[in-house]
Structure formats: C-alpha cells, structure tokens
Design a protein around this nucleic acid. Sequence first.
DNA 1: ACAAAAGCAAGAGCAGTGCTCTCTTTTCAG
DNA 2: CTGAAAAGAGAGCACTGCTCTTGCTTTTGT
Lengths: 226, 226
Amino acid sequence: MNAIRTARERARAELTHEIKQEARRQLSEAGSAQLSLRAVARALGMASSAIYRYFPSRDELLTALILDAYNALGDAAEKADRPQAPPRERWMLVCAAVREWATAHPHEYALLYGTPVPGYEAPAETVDPGTRIIRRCAEILLAGQPLRRPFTGPLEPELDDQMRAVTEAAGLDLSPEDAARLLMVWSQLFGLVGFEVFGQFANSADPAGPLFRYATARMADFLGLR
Amino acid sequence: MNAIRTARERARAELTHEIKQEARRQLSEAGSAQLSLRAVARALGMASSAIYRYFPSRDELLTALILDAYNALGDAAEKADRPQAPPRERWMLVCAAVREWATAHPHEYALLYGTPVPGYEAPAETVDPGTRIIRRCAEILLAGQPLRRPFTGPLEPELDDQMRAVTEAAGLDLSPEDAARLLMVWSQLFGLVGFEVFGQFANSADPAGPLFRYATARMADFLGLR
DNA sequence: ACAAAAGCAAGAGCAGTGCTCTCTTTTCAG
DNA sequence: CTGAAAAGAGAGCACTGCTCTTGCTTTTGT
C-alpha cells in the first residue's frame, strides 16, 4: 500500500470512495440500469461534470463496483471457509456464504452474474477476483482427495484437453474429470443462487433455503466429498 | 384465432409485428439496455410518439419480447423432444435445444434469465410460458419412472412440504425428492447455459459444448434416467 | 519563495432518451 | 354520409452521458 501523501490525494481517495458508496446505495435501490452519474453527483452536492475527474465514464464506475463486488463476495466465501474442517463441511460453508452474500446484495450480484452490462466487456482486472470462488472450491476438492465419486462418465477428448490445460494453467493437481465436475458444480451453484435472487423459484421453492441446502449436499455427494 | 377483418386491424397487427421484429433486431445487436423506442420508430420511418399507440411504454415492449422469447425457447425445446425416445435421450435432446436457442439468441436469453429489467416485475402472462421447459422436463422424469437414483438424501420437512405443494399444483405424480432434484437440475441447466452465454467459461471450457454434453449426461445419471 | 504546471470544480451545451400533449388526418360504423 | 374512434406527426418536458471552456487551488521545480 502506498501511503497517501498530499492533502489532494487524500481528498481524492475519500471522494472516490464516497462516489462508489453512493453509487452502491443507488444500485441497491433500483439496479444498475437506473444508476445515474448525475444523480450520484446530486446526492454528493457536486456538479455532474466533476464526477468525470474520478471516473471517466459510467462504465468505469460500474467496473469499479464490479471489482469491489467480486472481492466482497470472495472475502465472504473465504471468511466462511474453515480450512481445518472436513472438505464436505467446507464446501457447504462456502456455498452458504455465496448464497448469503448474493441475497444480501442482489443488485451487486446481478452486476457480477447477471446480464453483462451493455457495450462493455470485462476488463482484465476483473478476471482474477472473479475466479476466487472457484479457486477456493478447487482447493476444497484437492483437500478431499481421494474423492468417492458415485458414478463416472467418459470425457470427450476435447473436454479432456481443455481440463488438462486449465488445471495446468491454474497449477492444480486435479484430474480432468474432477476439473469438469468442478466447473459443473460451480455453474450449478450460481445457477441456484441466480434463480433464487432473480425470483425464478417464486411459487415453487420459496423460500429457497431448504432446496439450497439439499442441492449443495447432493453436489457434495456428486463431487465425492466426505 | 380471430380473423382480422378490417384493414385497420390488419395494419395494426402487421405494424405491431414489425415493431417487435425491429426491436428484436436492435436487441440482438446491443442488448436490452440499448433498446430505444425512438430508434425503433426511426428505423420504421414513423414518429416516435406513434409507437406509443402500439406499446404504451418501453417496458411493455420488453414484456412482449419476453413473452415471445419464452415461447420461442419453449417451442425449440418441445420440438427437439421425441416423446417416444428413451427418457435419457429425451433429456439430452431438450437440454441441447435450450443451449442452442440460447447461444443463437443470447440477448433474448438474457432478457429471460439474466438480470430482471429495472423497475419491472414479471407480469402474470409471462409466468406460464416461463414454465414450459421445466414442465417438459417433469414429463420426461415421469416417463422415466421408476428412476435409478445413484444416491439419495433426506429432505428437510419444509422442502418436503414445498415439493408436495408444487407437484400437486402442477398435477404431477412426482415424489418430493424427484421434484427437488428436478428443480436442482433445472437451475443447473440454466446455470450452465447462462455461464456459457455470458462468457464465464471463457479461458476454461471454451467452447463449452463438450462440458455441456458431459454435464447433461451426469445430470441424467443424477436424475436416474436410463 | 515564486512562478509554472497540474489538478479540480462548475456551468453551459450537445445529442440522445422516455413519455405526454395537442393537433391533424385517416378509417370505420351506423 | 356523417360522427366517432383510431392513428400519425410534431413540439415540448425532464432526464441522461459526456465534452468543453473558464476560472480557481494545490502541488511542484527551480
């Protein structure tokens, strides 16, 4: 961390933070589409044009919020994990933490895992924080070796190649089939959470807590975690 | 179907269709946030205010598009299904059809399963078409009875109640555990498809076809489909 | 210590948006 | 044929993101 030296830099850091804070506040009330730079400026008592000294565009503000949200979610998941606990329990803890964070911050969750923002493509900085959850899950899977998979199935050669490439790139000692299952279960976790947050379980599994616990337990079975 | 009698009604039906067509075109280029009534009007060579004779607001237009999209997706899935085939094959066919439609119409898919549109809440008309996929999956599950589930787990009483209520309301003869698994697998399907469409599998399972086929096969195993 | 440079705030302004209102034209029904 | 209903067009309002110019303040190099 670089120390903040001048008063100007100090003020800048503070204002940047206040802008994001107010933006998050508005986000939590109406969603990203309703987030307006002018409204943020108004709430902070500054000219709308002054905001652009801090964020060159609305998309840049959103990107900053996305980054913070990824890290908040990652923090929540990692904080909930107990590395000394049995892998199955760790898995359940991490899943529950993801769900809790998502339901507590639905609009920020939507920013991360909902429809990507209009014209914009995820900048490289967001890639790394975006992988924190699955990296943690991979660790849990490694801690649970050898896995007791209830059934197995062949991988197409292309999938086998992809999984070997991705485990190697991540420096993980996972078999291709474990990696494929991990990706499956990862998308399943966010499918479940997304459906709950976006209201798809209304009138069926509502509230979704019991289904969520059942599902994460079955996912642990599927992964072969004990 | 009511026959269209007067020239005016005929013209109205046609223009309504053209507006939606043009809106879909713009949607497919830039996403729902960029969809502009004025731009649609411009493309159709009419005054922006005239659009409001057909759709009283932007949200109503979007709702109409959502309805059409749900039905297009439902059609695709039902058309792909072969009711005489073995349940496991039917399951794979339906899953593949959902994926194909979604990747072919990513922005419309986002309209259905991405972040819900800002202030708006799904009107009652969209609920029914939105359940076509899972209803079809439920049928397949019924056709596959008795299922050979590889492992099983207890349902919390609340989940058991919810599942009994939902199967009764839908008139389906599914056990609570089958229903819970169906909801799980349903959300998993859309989790997978959503991750692919929204680019979450970039740099890991990209293209996602092999992973998708592996995952749907394991889901069939999980459901106990033969 | 002082002047140059860089950073910052504010206001006006542009092009675009959703939506409303009024006015005119077209079409339909009795 | 005539009165009513429907449709189109245009102006206008309040809002948006964003740019540019104009002053002012803080920092920095000599």
